[in-house]
Amino acid sequence: MDKELKMAICRAYEAPLPGRKEEFLQKIPQNSMQKSSLYEIICSQIGYIHKGAWFSATAIFGAILYFLSQQEPNTVFLCSALTPFLALGVLIESGRSQRYNMAELESATKYSLRSTIFSKMLILGIFDLIVLLLIISLTQLQKRYGLLLTAAYILLPYLLTMWLGLMIERTSFGREIPYSVMGISTLISVLMFISTGTNIIILKPDYGIWWEFGTFILIAEIILSGQKRMDQLEESIWN
């Protein structure tokens, strides 16, 4: 067809506005009617984790790297004394919805509050795990203790803080929760620092079995505690 004629037709006949477009679109089966995968929820949440959580974890890792560079004999315990603050980051983030009164809104969205909080805890938990594994690997370079014992020394204060923090979040209500969790993590950290300085008997490798045993028990307890927290999360807020 002649190009000029084409242009003339275009000018003469304006395309009509779409009629009942919304109705038509609503009738198309939506992918979103399928159940969301954990991957989708994680992707939607990763950008909304408070910057402070990433910043504090990175700062703690930096401080631990400094301790490691000093090559002190008690480096393992100095590093482990800082790990409660890593756990604190996860706990503070998991309680944000309730603290800022967003929980009710978040519960009524496609991704439930339970999925949202679980995905945030999972993201930060994996980040912490990577940091902790790095710390264990780096302290292991000093070859002062066996791998399992080094891991137990590093992990136990972190796990203890996490377990107690989850218990506080599950059993308490109100704005005092973050302060209680901060108090617990500070207390565990300070106790570790003091113990390191006094060379207390419990830190000796002879008691290593208790550290290893405690670590395994706490891992199991945290899984159970996390499950309970998720189960009671939505109901407890309004009951």
Binding site: M33, N101, M102, L105, A108
Partner: peptide, 18 residues
């Protein structure tokens, strides 16, 4: 989830992240 996907809700009182 299929129900929540088509639900809109305005609570009486809601907050926001600072």
């Amino acid at each position: 989830e299929r129900y929540r996907n088509i639900l809109g809700y305005l609570p009486q009182d809601f907050g926001y992240y600072p």
